[in-house]
Design a protein around this nucleic acid. Sequence first.
DNA 1: TTGTACGCGTTATCAT
DNA 2: ATGATAACGCGTACAA
Lengths: 366, 366
Amino acid sequence: MATERQVKASRGVAGRRPGEPRKPVTMIEVAAAAGVAQSTVSRILNDSPGMIAVSEQTATRVKRIAAELGYRPDPIARALRGAPTMLLGAIVRDITDPFFTGAVEALTIACKARGYSVVLGNARATEDEALAITAVLEARQCDGIVLFGDFTAEHRLVDDLEDLHARIVGLWHGSENEHPFPTVGVNNRSGVRAALDHLAELGHRDIAYVGAESLGDMQDRHAAYVEWMSEHGLPIPDGAIQIVPNYFGGGNHALGPILDRAPRISAVLAATDTLAVGLLHAAHARGVQVPNELSIVGFDDISMAAVTVPSLTTVRMPVVEIVTRGVDLCIGENPWSGVWPPPREEFEPRLIVRGSSAAAVTTQPL
Amino acid sequence: MATERQVKASRGVAGRRPGEPRKPVTMIEVAAAAGVAQSTVSRILNDSPGMIAVSEQTATRVKRIAAELGYRPDPIARALRGAPTMLLGAIVRDITDPFFTGAVEALTIACKARGYSVVLGNARATEDEALAITAVLEARQCDGIVLFGDFTAEHRLVDDLEDLHARIVGLWHGSENEHPFPTVGVNNRSGVRAALDHLAELGHRDIAYVGAESLGDMQDRHAAYVEWMSEHGLPIPDGAIQIVPNYFGGGNHALGPILDRAPRISAVLAATDTLAVGLLHAAHARGVQVPNELSIVGFDDISMAAVTVPSLTTVRMPVVEIVTRGVDLCIGENPWSGVWPPPREEFEPRLIVRGSSAAAVTTQPL
DNA sequence: TTGTACGCGTTATCAT
DNA sequence: ATGATAACGCGTACAA
């Protein structure tokens, strides 16, 4: 009568073939099995706030039967009733970027602490189709949306987002841009200055800069570099500023032009660790010793920065703080109240000195 | 009368203060504004498959009004009607792991191509609370769930998952384990053998192995290493096998014991690139030249493997193929039919020779 | 060609 | 202490 294969820890549903998903059990079925009304089941299973007493008798019986039947509340029906979906959308400019990878990790942790799950939208997968992202995300119902990176250029996306019934927060959205939602970021200027001060203390005067093309933070760091150099009366020779795509390969290709066109350069500030890693690789390939012949300083302190060869001196991004703050602004207890203009909050980065920076040596041996 | 601030591209809803999310517009409101029945709006907006003609007149009018009002279909209500949620759950053993990071990227792309979004579950965030993951994911309604890594130890989670009304697929779930769902993975044995054959061709005979503690693939690679060494009549000296956590730091700490206890070792096979990167770092810190004095081969070909110093010889995991296949098995056109036992599919890895492996030198100088 | 009515699974407000 | 009933927003068979 019973099948040979025993279903382990059977819940009383007999003979279900493993594999195909089980048909969900509804409250009505539980009610029928318990011989009570469906509304009663709802009250019992939800410990209704109405405080209306329920007989211990039926309560335990209903709970038992619900467990036996493997009842699971349907979140969709609950959501239709107005319950929050407990979903937080994350739109990431480039999920390949190791920095954003770390940020997403921090996001999942911050969300989990609040009972939320993360819905991932990768902005890079489809170029102009950034609109499609919205469509994808609109099709879901997220209680909030967190933007990772600068999306000011994606007017269509930002506009669409505003029409969504969800709270929006921008992370690392750049400092210069207008934004109809609160943003949280880092003080790029102070980070860049800390890095350059460090190099100056080591005796470097000929410092190059490798940045990325994207907006927001990249512009801030670029500007801070130019400003600092100017303040210290240091000229920026031709070729000492390279703007490349923010990939490993970008940094890899940036070193050649710098050393060829500005041979006096003794240190390079990279706008991101991703670029710095590429620079490290390029230096090795070119036979340039780091840090003896060339110092390299990154920005972000991504996880691999501690284990590069040599380990990377960099500016640590307070990722956890920024993400946590952003999540709070979005779905926390005191979300943005709607006051205009929306706030921009900035956290302070911190210089981490490792093995890729050392004292400058005079290019002219005596 | 009107506020000073003009709302750009206003949709006809006047005076909405920017910031707070707009109240959603329902079909009923659209119908009321257009002077038709709600069902009519539904038909028009959905190009109903019933082929029932609709007058061009009202159709365009309704569409216009819907657009003006900024109508958005409510995905929750649709889902309640039985429509798929177009959500795919991803449960990742450790989202910090650079390998899984790449896999998730591939997942988002594969999903987007099918109109799906990814809901991220990080298994590492909460230790024993793996159960909570289920709770979190159960609270959502995913059409399918993809497991990244080996979860056979998490019986509770797998059991709970089976109760979910969703299709499940396991990726990199190990070859030895029973699994009540289809799995897709890599041929670890052939990958390891390719790596070791490569080292043998370079003249290496004293080859160490650094593996990780987790299950599944790690066990397969470990066993394949032992098997290969045995087949070639090569002894495995004490200390030549190190099992460490699968982090950069794990590989970093593994090199010391190997070189101290088995000084004849001239090459190390790492079970993952993550470990290999740590080994590279440790070798540099110890002053051991790679590849001149020590060859290191990894496994996975994570993105950074091409830019380490030196670049890493490794076994390339066909990530995209595996993920794509898994997604198809889960939510594709021909998902797993339920035949028992569920299939396990394997893809072939490929050796990528880079700069971290070179010919062995005799330890005894003449 | 369009309107009416029902149900999806819940929760909440009434009655009983 | 519990049962009946009305929403929630949408799709769809059925009636007009």
